[in-house]
């Protein structure tokens, strides 16, 4: 068998498009991605959505490891990479090959930022994800730490989770303080990543609608050359043709 190439440093050959969002918790990236999905679907595109840490294969193990608090920086990193590999293979590549638009809430960059803060080697974690494909568009929602905390504490979720706050690192006994320190370090890592991989930086302190307008304009331009494949759902204009006599 010929060894498979490492693909993260080149654009993918598939007919679909991969659009991803990155940012710390509370940056509003998921909201923006959801609104983008609504818009794309209303335009008649076939869209597939996938998110970080959600494959069946490792979800249980991650939960178990988090509960018993026995995850080390390396096993934490490897588990997320396993989850990512499984999703890439089962969820991301098939729709891309079928010509769909794939929207991903977080991508390998999340691992680059978090794992580096937990102390694993930056080179190692980048090479670890070398089997991944490069997204067509990668948005980074940049937000100051205080805005993110306000949104998390005052908003929909009202609670910060143990690992989101980096409580495993023993930064502070107070969960909000630990979150502040941990996520500030992640922000600093993202700053490096944005330059290294040329992510599109969005000002996440602006209004939701303003950000979405900007995002849609950018995606519109990027999709100019994109020829969507006709799907089987909701295309009623095509549906009757199947019964048409020759």
């Amino acid at each position: 068998m010929t060894p498979s190439p490492l693909t993260f440093d080149q654009s993918h050959p598939y007919p679909g498009k991969l659009i991803i969002v990155e940012g710390i918790d509370g940056s509003g990236k998921s909201t923006q991605l959801l609104l983008l999905q609504k818009w794309l679907e209303s335009k008649g595109y076939n869209v597939f959505f996938t998110e970080w840490n959600s494959s069946e294969l490792v979800r249980e193990t991650t939960k178990k490891g988090k509960k018993s608090k026995t995850l080390t920086p390396t096993t934490f990193s490897l588990l997320h990479a396993t989850d990512f590999a499984s999703r890439l293979y089962h969820q991301i590549l098939p729709p891309l090959k079928a010509g769909m638009i794939v929207l991903a809430d977080r991508y390998a960059y999340t691992a680059f930022a978090r794992d580096a803060v937990r102390g694993v080697s930056r080179t190692w974690v980048r090479q670890l994800y070398n089997f991944a494909i490069r997204p067509d568009m990668a948005f980074y929602f940049n937000v100051p730490i205080d805005v993110a905390i306000d949104r998390l504490l005052g908003g929909a979720r009202a609670q910060i989770k143990f690992y989101e706050a980096g409580m495993d690192m023993g930064l502070s006994q107070d969960i909000t303080e630990s979150f502040r320190i941990f996520q500030s370090r992640i922000l600093a890592e993202y700053d490096k990543i944005v330059e290294e991989y040329r992510l599109i930086v969005m000002d996440a302190t602006k209004d939701i609608e303003t950000q979405q307008t900007e995002m849609r304009a950018l995606v519109s331009t990027a999709l100019e050359q994109y020829k969507p494949k006709r799907g089987t759902h909701g295309k009623r204009t095509l549906f009757w043709r199947r019964f048409d006599l020759p």
Partner: peptide, 22 residues
Amino acid sequence: NILDRWSFSLLYATDFADRLEH
């Protein structure tokens, strides 16, 4: 039996890392 090659290798790597450190 649904493993892709990357998950296959990474699962083993995670197992090994866990045993190495603990």
